[in-house]
């Protein structure tokens, strides 16, 4: 069971690391004020890094102080509902890669039915109609009317 307390620890850690990394990189750019006015390139990023580190530390302290309160707040991450979300995320990443190879329309032909199936739609006719109509609408609006280019298959 994941509760907010654990999440906060993770968030504090990640934010602190990120903030320190930003500091390190900004130092290379130069932090501080320039002679004739203006600030060096690394100053503003260093400030943002500083805010992150500061907020991370305060969050850590607050979580430690209010341990009970945060333990009771549940962060829903493990239910079957969430697993479906992770599956969808995976499908999306695969789709991104497919876009490069197969182009928008062919990948869409795979993606939309896949998504609808994951969401529980089993009616094949409905799936087919939605896919065709959606892709046709995209074709009409983006290719015909707006003339924007959409990803194309690598064999074209």
């Amino acid at each position: 069971m994941v509760n907010m307390k654990k999440c906060n620890y993770v968030i504090s850690a990640v934010a602190a690391v990120l903030g320190v990394a930003i500091w390190a990189l900004s130092a290379g750019l130069g932090i501080g004020f320039k002679e004739e006015g203006g600030i060096s390139a690394g100053t503003w990023p260093a400030i943002t890094g500083g805010i992150m580190v500061g907020a991370a530390l305060i969050l850590l302290v607050m979580t430690l102080v209010n341990r009970k309160k945060y333990e009771e707040m549940e962060v829903v991450l493990g239910l079957p509902a969430n697993r479906r979300v992770y599956l969808v995320m995976g499908i999306m990443v695969v789709y991104c890669l497919l876009l490069n190879v197969l182009g928008l329309y062919i990948s869409g032909l795979i993606l939309i039915p896949a998504l609808m199936w994951v969401l529980g739609e089993r009616n094949k006719k409905k799936t087919a109609i939605v896919t065709v109509v959606a892709l046709a609408a995209i074709y009409v609006i983006f290719s015909l009317i707006l003339g924007t280019k959409l990803p194309e298959p690598f064999f074209m």
């Binding site: 329309y105 062919i106 892709l135 074709y139 194309e152």
Partner: peptide, 11 residues
């Protein structure tokens, strides 16, 4: 639809 898409793609 597929044919049209392919045709536009191929140009």
């Amino acid at each position: 639809v597929l044919g049209a898409a392919l045709l536009t793609g191929c140009g």
